[in-house]
Write a protein that binds this DNA or RNA. Structure first.
Lengths: 330, 330
DNA sequence: AGCCGCCATGAAATCGTTTGCAGGAACCGC
DNA sequence: GCGGTTCCTGCAAACGATTTCATGGCGGCT
């Protein structure tokens, strides 16, 4: 592989000049510039990123800590964020946590060695922010969270407006005469979860309704959990005419349970999901849900990283609004 | 951040000794060993991976080129491969190609700088293998392909036995009296695609049946394509009693089209998918499909990388068998 | 004409790690 | 007691880029 030395030799200049031409942050004569450039072409020179990293004291990779890449939400986020990073000339190092602490510990162990440019957290789990900060060890490394706010710990966050969105959807259900409305989704131990639930409470409060514990199910974001929650409610004879689910998977499970009990969606029970996963428009009935905007989140992330690199101040919290996508289930 | 120099100073030895203790490939006295280790602990020393990479002439990251991380197959593969790499002490650098050439070009441009330890291709698209080989520039970098064989170009491949699996499934359909059987999926421009179709042809041949062009649909792996293919066949009055789809998405689209035409699955038309995506067991009817084993692929990948690092020879092609998962749709 | 300042350039130090080489100590067998 | 191993250790040279510092040349100004 060619080095700057080789290029310098061929171009008849010093390595320093080669570096200057390539980095472009110092004035270089047009003559030298041309010679270096042709030499670079001729040798197909590619600077060694590890040598650059060593000298500059920082790498070019950003770690993405993802809750579970198999979940559609995270996959979409990952895709768009990778894209954004490419545009910034950065590399994405993926760490799939699978919601398991052991994986996180392994990351924390390895991270300091990597001299990361930044860490992006995309996980609904509770995180040891202080430890992560330590793992990217001073050096101005950027730490940001997507999909979940960690403002309290001073982490720049980009989130979607879950509370307002859920509140709007629940209000919509109530307006359509779908009260009593149940809430099915994670509540404790998850920041977005409690945010969503807060939206539910807010809407109920505004409508002058009380929160009925029999209608609130704190469960994991899984199809089976939605199925079970609705099965139990119906079997127990709980009156329920509307459901706000914390995710589309939950909503689809809920719909299946309702239909299995011989009830119709949305006539007997209306269901609203959250996340607008691809499959949601293909189900029968097609799912009414709250939109998801991974591409807008990624745009924001790109903007924030760029600002930070240029030393500008970045907003501690950016909120991307969700909107209600009305299909057939509500 | 502490360096080996700091550790050496504190331990009262030379940097060389520190390095030797840490790498463990040269004999070091028990005394020195102990002193170094306590110093490392005390300073919380973490070797700078970029300096190591520079000195050793190779990095610790493996690039994963993925067709589209949003597709469940790739997400699962990514997850398990990341896992395998962690166990090998390697880092996963993700490049989502999104089936777009421009992305691939960007990768090829950036890759040589990264001094990658290896490249893993997980994409059903046709790839410029020679260019990728050039991008990891000699240096013994490993190139391997998962899910698709590229033996002809000398690329180590780990695949699932698509041809045999599809042949078995089609034979099963015929045995159940589901002939004529249609094939819906990608055929041209995709190695796994043509492999799957070869299985279809094989089974028909063995049963003494001819391939009827009206029953073969070369379409993309998307829900809508499956829907359209079946809609057209039925609307055209083509006799069809069984369907082998090239993916679960296609199969689900096909089922929806069949049901929309007032026919029943599997009584009137039986459908077999491929991939066993998570949602496949939750549909009505539950999807009969061919299994997918990303974890076994990843195991194989781990084994291959380990072998290669130790200088042992690796098999050019490893095949993981798929099996038929019988549910309700066939 | 002489002086000052600016601009482009090169030499050399530096980032943090690994390793070839050589030297010194200890130990063996004779 | 001595030559020959063996074993451990330190010195110093890499790896490949960037940047500080110094220098030489040049034009502009008085």
């Amino acid at each position: 592989m060619a080095t700057v030395r080789d290029v310098a030799l061929l171009a008849g200049v010093s390595p320093a000049t080669v570096s200057r031409v390539l980095s472009g942050r110092t004035a270089v004569s047009a003559d030298a510039q041309a010679k270096v450039l042709t030499a670079v072409k001729a040798l197909d020179f590619q600077p060694n990123s590890m040598a650059q990293g060593l000298r500059l004291g920082r790498g070019t990779s950003v770690a993405l800590l993802v809750g579970d890449i198999e979940q559609g939400v995270y996959a979409a986020l990952t895709k768009h964020i990778q894209n954004a990073l490419v545009e910034l000339g950065l590399d994405l190092m993926l760490f799939n946590l699978g919601h398991r602490e052991e994986r996180l510990l392994r990351f924390l162990e390895r991270a300091p060695s990597l001299r990361l440019r930044g860490v992006i957290i995309a996980s609904s789990d509770v995180m040891p922010i202080a430890a992560i900060k330590a793992a990217l060890l001073g050096r101005g490394g950027l730490l940001l969270s997507v999909g979940q706010k960690w403002q309290r710990h001073g982490v720049t966050s980009v989130v979607q407006g879950d509370r307002a969105a859920v509140a709007g959807a629940v209000r919509y259900l109530i307006d359509q005469g779908r009260a009593p409305v149940a809430y099915v989704g994670r509540i404790a131990g998850s920041v977005p979860g409690s945010d969503r639930f807060a939206g539910y409470r807010l809407a109920l409060g505004q409508a002058g309704l009380a929160v009925d514990p029999a209608l609130v199910w704190d469960v994991a974001y899984r199809y089976g959990a939605g199925y079970e929650a609705l099965s139990r409610m119906i079997d127990a004879g709980t009156a329920v005419r509307g459901v706000q689910a914390g995710s589309d998977e939950l909503a689809l499970g809920a719909i299946a349970a309702i239909q299995d009990r011989g009830l119709r969606v949305p006539e007997d029970v209306a269901v609203v999901g959250l996340g607008n996963m691809e499959f949601a428009s293909h189900t029968r009935p097609a799912l009414t849900t709250l939109s998801e905007h991974p591409e807008l989140i990624a745009d924001k992330v790109r903007e924030i990283i760029r600002s930070a690199e240029e030393g500008r101040k970045v907003p501690a919290l950016s909120v991307i609004p969700r909107s209600l996508i009305r299909r057939q289930s509500a």
